[in-house]
């Protein structure tokens, strides 16, 4: 028997569709019977979607120009000055 706490604990994997089919079926049964968990699941899914759908803002033109001019002055392998990570 899945509780609300169990559902919350599994929410990530449920949303990422990485739960095994047996557990997934139990979780689905739970949200069909528990309005609160259904809302939590639905609004968390929408939270992720809205961030994924956010378009990257255009760079301010001076920022782009400064970057391009810095790169133009460099040659590969001779700059960076730090670890390659």
């Amino acid at each position: 028997m899945i509780t609300c706490k169990d559902f919350l604990r599994e929410l990530n994997d449920f949303l990422d569709e990485t739960t095994d089919p047996v557990l997934r079926a139990e979780l689905e049964r739970h949200i069909n019977e528990c309005p609160n968990c259904w809302v939590i699941c639905d609004t968390t899914k929408k939270t992720i979607q809205v961030y994924k759908g956010m378009e990257a803002q255009n760079l301010p033109e001076p920022v782009h120009e400064r970057l391009m001019s810095m790169i133009a002055k460099k040659k590969p392998g001779c700059c960076g000055g730090g670890d390659t990570h």
Binding site: L67, M70, I71, K74, P76, G77, C78, C79, G80, G81, G82, T84
Partner: peptide, 10 residues
């Protein structure tokens, strides 16, 4: 980008 350009060999 500077580091990436500088370390493209890696």
């Amino acid at each position: 980008f500077l580091k990436a350009f500088g370390h493209l060999d890696s």
